[in-house]
Design a protein around this nucleic acid. Structure first.
Lengths: 208, 208, 208, 208
DNA sequence: GATGAATGAGACTTCATTCAT
DNA sequence: TATGAATGAAGTCTCATTCAT
């Protein structure tokens, strides 16, 4: 009765949902379409997910969870806040460019979901926000970032800018490379956040 | 036969739609609900709008059109790019704070719409983007803004930051004042955009 | 309150209905379309007709009434049953060929109407049936038509044949002339109805 | 996704549609009524038919297809054109008399359908027309039918007469037997079509 | 008499979810 | 576990008719 949250088919359904939503749009992604793409029967979806909404929330949680976990792991080893900022932007844009379906779904389609889906999305998003704020706070503590910026506001600028750049790119039908935006965005944000007398570190080439 | 695009009822329906969507969410805003709120019969909606989608696009176009027209008018008289930036942020946040329904609809609900509605939204949004880019370009030309930032990227940072701050505020259920964010956001963006040796102008008090 | 059954606008509305139905089909002929074609307001229709159904029945009655009255008048002066049959076919096909809108409406569109309209149509149609039967009966009485055919059946063959030929012609989009069918149909029916030893009269040229 | 065109329910829905349309009239036969009569849910209709129109076209095609296939099979074994004509009339009238609902639907209700339904109906009707013309052509080739009648016109008379007789019978609410019309109609048409010196064959008793 | 904006009942269709197999 | 045919609630839109002006 309770939905199984693991298994081969669980993942197959999630991946199918990403593909179907990316290709058909949120409002044109029926359960039956996702089931067909996943190679299972309609009813099988309900063995793994409580309902369609649960599937969509799970989709975002899984994908976002993977991303934040990966990001945290990669960033943990690093010390320099500038390098961390560079790495974050690089990870963010590389992920989207590497998976066009995911990019479409995350930047556009999933924002068409309703309130309760958004609530389900809130938790993993907050974790990502926390990572961003931590990077900023470390920079403040080590006196390389400005003391006079509210951390939350800093996060809003960092995320808002990356998100807007990514959305523009997706909406442009990806006629240019998002990776090419990594260094410009880094330079812009590093400049904006760096403390008055601190020399901004150039983008570490290896993070592209 | 052709939908009437003006008149008392036209506006009443637009306002009713904003209210209903704000209170019920995009996916729970049926035509009949909007009609009831507007005090007209369901069929009357179709005398003024081709269909539900046309109503939603019109809603955004009217509201966004009013805003960009107003913004352009207010900004036209001004010379100083810093002052213009300050004014823009002030207008943006004041509009949303003044009309809580509109804020919800613009920041959250309308982003749940489908592809064709988004297309209808694109045009007025581009006009707003253009205003932002013009402000930045003027600042570059008068040597107060950095020469080494791509104008489109500058616009993405400005809009992305304002949008993210506004969305955070709406999602927080507006437990704090968005107006209080005007000066911090201005300081942050002005700092990010200002040319190396230019002294950032403090936020003009009268623009709050 | 009671519908006016005469007047300039009454006729204008009838003619407009014929045109609109011919051009748009029965199911796509809204009251508002007919009103626009007639150059009156929607509400005005209801000053002259009880409702849409009443308009359609009236349309058929007027047109069919004109036709039967005209036919009766023309046929009254004639004596010869063969000549009368020839004249009838000629009148029938000439009327349809002369008024393409009427042809479409009578042969195709009006048959899409519902039960109560068909009932309203029945009376004028019966009058036309009566004319046909009378021609046959005269032929029987004067021994030029077969005695062994039931008059009703004779009428059904005459009307059924003319009707099928006319329908075929209308459905063919009138790529050929219906008038060219007058003589062949006459020959066929005259042959079928003529008494064994009676020489069929050739089609009187003047009736084409 | 694609509509299933076979199965137990497919037939049940077709039969239900015939009954509902016969009893309520074309314009008063809602999908929900047909579904109820068939003992299925409204949505089930759409598993078997693309839409309401598709159901109506299918209905006619199935019924007409059955009839023409049956007629062709029965007529194939026969040689004598007179006998074939007799058989055709017998089949036509017997079918309608045996299934009062079908008679109502075919003779009256389905003619109320719109253009696209009529188009869907055209193909099976043409097949029936072809059968009729073939009978006539065989009679001409074997010198028992008149050489001077255009085959298409012959078909129009045959079909037009049978159709008018059937329509009269249906409209009369079937207060008499349509079968009783078989021999009179045969005699009338055989007389009309037979070559000058050919003795008309009496109606073969076994075909009643 | 004439208008035409407004009405609102009602029809078709979709699709998330269920459940017998 | 898995299936997929069946369900039926619910939403958008049309259009004949009305009635205040």
């Amino acid at each position: 009765m309770a939905a199984k949250r693991t298994g081969e088919k669980y993942n197959a359904i999630i991946e199918a949902a990403v593909k179907v939503i990316a290709e058909n749009g949120y409002h044109n992604s029926q359960v039956s379409k996702i089931a067909r793409e996943a190679g299972v029967a309609d009813g099988t979806i309900y063995l793994y997910f409580k309902n369609k909404e649960d599937l969509l929330i799970s989709l975002f949680q899984v994908k976002m969870g993977d991303f934040t976990a990966g990001a945290r792991k990669e960033l943990n080893d690093m010390q320099n806040p500038f390098a961390k900022l560079a790495k974050l932007i690089s990870l963010h844009f590389n992920l989207l460019e590497a998976d066009r379906h995911l990019a479409l779904v995350v930047q556009i389609q999933l924002r068409q979901s309703n309130a309760s889906i958004r609530e389900g999305i809130a938790a993993p998003l907050k974790k990502y926000f926390k990572i961003i704020e931590e990077i900023f706070n470390e920079g403040v503590r080590s006196n390389v970032f400005r003391q006079d910026i509210n951390p939350k506001l800093a996060r809003q600028m960092i995320f808002g800018t990356m998100d807007e750049v990514a959305t523009s790119w997706v909406m442009s039908q990806r006629h240019y490379s998002l990776k090419d935006q990594i260094i410009p965005v880094y330079n812009l944000l590093a400049q904006a956040l760096s403390a008055p007398d601190v020399k901004i570190e150039p983008f570490p080439v290896k993070y592209i």
